[in-house]
Design a protein around this nucleic acid. Structure first.
Lengths: 196, 196
DNA sequence: GTCTATACACCGATAGAC
DNA sequence: GTCTATCGGTGTATAGAC
């Protein structure tokens, strides 16, 4: 009687190919911009013809969808690691959280555009791709709650403050630190406003 | 001897056609999104064939360029009118300036994307189109200076605060007021931080 | 299942007739 | 200045080889 193989070599190969397609897509996004990804270019980099990509992704937007999930999963991983070594002082913790997200966002323009802006014309993330994004926001809420920040408007303000610094940095001084310098001051200002 | 005509009817007609092309482009941007503008669609709305548009604009990006100048000119006009009726109190003036820009930005998503984000793949505003944008920033600097805000990092912080609220509002609650409600509080927080 | 070949409809842009 | 015709490029779809 034939037993079930331990490893599913076909599935492994399929997952590898999927990863290669995504890696090539990220490469193009970094080199030429997020919206400059073309199926023919992706296919060439992985040694295929363009239509063959449809064996692995249902459409070009499905590739963006997987990239969106990738990006937010990476964000969730980074912030998880940070919270584990959070300092006791609420202000210090606030600054660490904000700095972690700021550095993550500023370090990759294409990724930030995919995560936080709607720069791709017809693209809307699927529910599955949104899951790690929701998890990240939940995680942020828990982390802020542990510092005593629980009201929705306070969390909204935090989101706007950090997001505003990130957007200003990327839009007006990409590669620089003109707005990154203001991050600690902004968090002190925020903590003062909350009476922390 | 033939005198020069008082009115240049050909130039007037040309300017009118240009305006019609831009109006049609804004209409499409509002209905379908900024990146969904196609030359064939624009041409159809003004009663032309697509290639005829090249008699009035050198390229599709030249249309975006004129729209960019339009948008910042409108912003400059609105903020100019606001400063003229500024209250004496620095805090009240700060709130009025911020509210004016916030309402202007939030009222038109497509316009805001064109002005402040880089959502169109190959588009970079020309120097001429940038002029009203630079004038707006100069105008903001003068207005803030009159309130006692003169350091570059203080101005940078103001830009990030207002921009962050606008982006959060448009991205997470379009048509609502969830972040608009935080504008006055944010300006008080900012004024506290500056000791105003 | 995976890939190739081919095709379609649409895009921005250009050439040349009128 | 506007037209028709056309070009190379795009995302997408499908038939069929292996």
């Amino acid at each position: 009687m034939l037993g079930t193989p331990i490893r599913d070599r076909a599935a492994e190969r399929r997952a590898t190919t999927r990863g290669e397609i995504l890696a090539a897509s990220w490469q193009i996004a970094h080199e030429q911009g997020l919206s400059q990804i073309t199926l023919r270019d992706v296919a060439e980099r992985v040694g295929m013809r363009a239509p063959s990509l449809y064996s692995h992704f249902a459409s070009k937007n499905a590739i963006y969808d997987a990239m969106f999930a990738d990006a937010w999963s990476a964000c969730l991983e980074v912030t998880n690691a940070t919270v584990a070594r959070a300092p006791r002082s609420p202000r210090a913790a606030l600054k660490l959280y904000a700095r972690t997200f700021f550095d993550f966002a500023v370090s990759d323009l294409a990724r930030h555009q995919l995560m936080n802006q709607r720069t791709i014309p017809g693209f809307e993330p699927s529910a599955e791709a949104y899951a790690p994004a929701v998890a990240s926001l939940d995680h942020l809420r828990e982390s802020l709650a542990a510092l005593g920040v629980r009201r929705r408007e306070d969390i909204d303000l935090y989101v706007a403050l950090v997001g505003g610094l990130v957007d200003a940095q990327l839009a007006n001084d990409p590669g620089g630190n003109r707005w990154g310098r203001l991050l600690n001051r902004t968090m002190d200002m925020y903590a003062d406003n909350l009476g922390l």
